[in-house]
């Protein structure tokens, strides 16, 4: 396997060719903000938080989908990136109805973490207050579309890891939402195995266990990575 060397925020990293800038950053212990990226799942590059600057390229590129190249010089933090990331988060907070105070994921929410990481304490854009619903029809889990940021981790984990493809995105643009089955109540979808992987994959409080109340959702996100590696490498011990 060939190895390429590159610089991430001035740190030299050597990593297998074909890896992503995101993986290289992890190797270099550089934290890159992200929401749609989850180790073990395919990448979609949709949240745009992980965009980085690469010397010699005049476009911002997402770290999760950009392959490493020999001699790359990557900057993950700059005033411009910080400013743009903050705006992305402001847009996300304005788009849904994110009320941390009563959210199951309060204190354990990646959206919240990202807001803190980029210093977003309020949104300069007006809140849209969309009329969205919660679906508690499943016996064990619930989905509250108010808190969904459309990262599609649930869609991917259900399709790629569990193989049930309960979820998909329907509609378009601002009306996009996560749909179960034929836009049925989640509890009515035959394909659901109630495995709970989407609960663990969800970065916010959108998908949760039904008995969880404020701040009680403590997602085990590493579990998916563990599961993927367990299957690939036959290592069933964490």
């Amino acid at each position: 396997m060939s190895v390429v060397t590159l610089k991430i925020d001035g740190v030299d990293v050597a990593i297998a060719a074909g890896s992503s800038v995101m993986q290289a950053a992890q190797e270099a212990s550089v934290e890159i903000p992200r929401l749609c990226y989850l180790e073990g799942l395919s990448t979609v590059g949709s949240c745009r938080l992980c965009v980085v600057e690469i010397a010699g390229i005049n476009k911002l590129l997402p770290a999760c989908t950009t392959e490493v190249r020999e001699g790359m010089d990557v900057t993950t933090q700059s005033p411009k990136l910080q400013d743009y990331r903050r705006m992305v988060l402001e847009l996300l907070f304005g788009e849904g109805n994110h009320v941390c105070a009563i959210c199951v994921a309060n204190g354990n929410c990646e959206l919240q973490d990202m807001a803190i990481a980029v210093g977003m304490d309020h949104s300069r854009f007006p809140y849209r207050f969309p009329d969205r619903k919660a679906d508690l029809s499943h016996t064990q889990f619930g989905i509250d579309h108010n808190r969904c940021i459309l990262c599609t981790r649930c869609v991917r984990v259900c399709d790629e890891i569990e193989g049930a493809h309960v979820w998909d995105v329907s509609q378009r643009g601002e009306f996009c939402h996560i749909t179960s089955g034929l836009d049925q109540p989640w509890g009515d979808v035959d394909a659901c195995t109630a495995c709970g992987k989407c609960v663990d994959a969800c970065p916010t409080g959108a998908i949760f266990r039904k008995n969880d109340t404020t701040g009680e959702k403590v997602g085990d996100r590493e579990k998916l990575e563990f599961l993927v590696k367990a299957r690939e490498n036959r290592e069933w011990v964490r």
């Binding site: 009563i102 508690l136 039904k210 969880d212 109340t213 404020t214």
Partner: peptide, 14 residues
């Protein structure tokens, strides 16, 4: 209205 009843403690406490 429309919220899970499990959230009522959190909401009404506010």
């Amino acid at each position: 209205e429309g919220r899970p009843f499990t959230e009522m403690a959190g909401i009404t406490a506010r």
